[in-house]
């Protein structure tokens, strides 16, 4: 009887330890199908190219410019050999003109009742020098993201979405590019390489093509917008989000400025 209890005790301990294993089911085909783009609202009038306007502007930075952090790749010879010069984090880059780089600016609201064709052109994401190029990018739902490995080393590509399906794929050197799509809008979707944990990229997935990423001049331009009221959001990986409402009339260009501070 006592021996029986001992066996039960050990079994019970193992079962209790494993009891929490119910989560993390494999994403099924049905789940994939459920993630397909939801139908848009009632269709609006087709966009008249003769009446479209634009929202342009820049993203300013206030405060003390943060020092860019050097990435330590010393433990991975393939990465150090690809980068004879020091490599710095792209988390915060303040341009010489006081603007902020890598800010994703997009129409957050105002286009809900419109649908847009998915562009045929590919959006490229390259792994080169053990860094993602570009660091911040945008794609439309269903548009193909073309992921390349230009490095002489293994990478894994691991998007960590909240709205789309998470996956993790390896990409050894000299292998064919990966072609991936995200069926649901999501701002922003982080991507990580767990082999080289400093490698991070952010993808904005939208149902429309009105988005931009600030570059070395900190400027953005959302062109071809039909007249209407819009909410424009600017997203930065460290400083969060800011938004403004803008109304544009026929053939009108409105200029706005966002400001992030340290």
């Amino acid at each position: 009887m006592i021996r029986l209890k001992w066996s039960w005790l050990v079994s019970l301990l193992l079962v209790l330890t494993l009891a929490g294993c119910g989560g993390g089911e494999a994403p099924s085909m049905q789940e994939d199908a459920a993630m397909e783009e939801a139908p848009a609202g009632p269709p609006a009038e087709p966009i008249d190219p003769e009446t479209v306007g634009a929202i342009t502007g820049s993203v300013a930075f206030e405060g003390e410019t943060p020092r860019r952090v050097r990435i330590r790749m010393d433990a991975v010879p393939a990465c150090t050999e690809s980068n004879p010069d020091p490599v710095y984090s792209e988390e915060v880059i303040v341009n010489d003109n006081g603007t902020l780089q890598n800010v994703f600016v997009y129409v957050k609201a105002g286009l809900e009742n419109r649908t847009f064709d998915v562009p045929e052109q590919l959006v490229h994401l390259d792994q080169n020098g053990c860094v993602y190029h570009p660091h911040v990018l945008g794609v439309m739902t269903g548009q193909t993201l073309h992921i390349m490995n230009s490095d002489p080393t293994n990478h894994n590509i691991h998007p960590m979405p909240a709205q789309n399906r998470e996956w993790n794929k390896s990409q050894p050197p000299d292998t064919a590019p990966l072609r991936e799509q995200f069926p649901r809008p999501e701002v922003m979707l982080p991507v990580k390489c767990n082999v080289h944990p400093w490698m991070k990229a952010y993808i904005g997935v939208l149902r429309h093509p009105f988005f931009a990423v600030t570059g070395t001049d900190g400027a953005f331009s959302l062109e071809g917008l039909p007249p209407g009221d819009y909410t424009i959001e600017a997203w930065h990986e460290k400083y969060g989000t800011a938004e403004q409402t803008v109304t544009i009339g026929e053939k009108e260009t409105q200029e706005i400025e966002f400001t992030f501070s340290s």
Binding site: C21, G24, E25, H158, E166
Partner: peptide
């Protein structure tokens, strides 16, 4: 690895 580090399995 297969289920991408679900918390219950990782803790178990």
């Amino acid at each position: 690895v297969i289920y991408l580090l679900p918390t219950p399995i990782s803790v178990s």
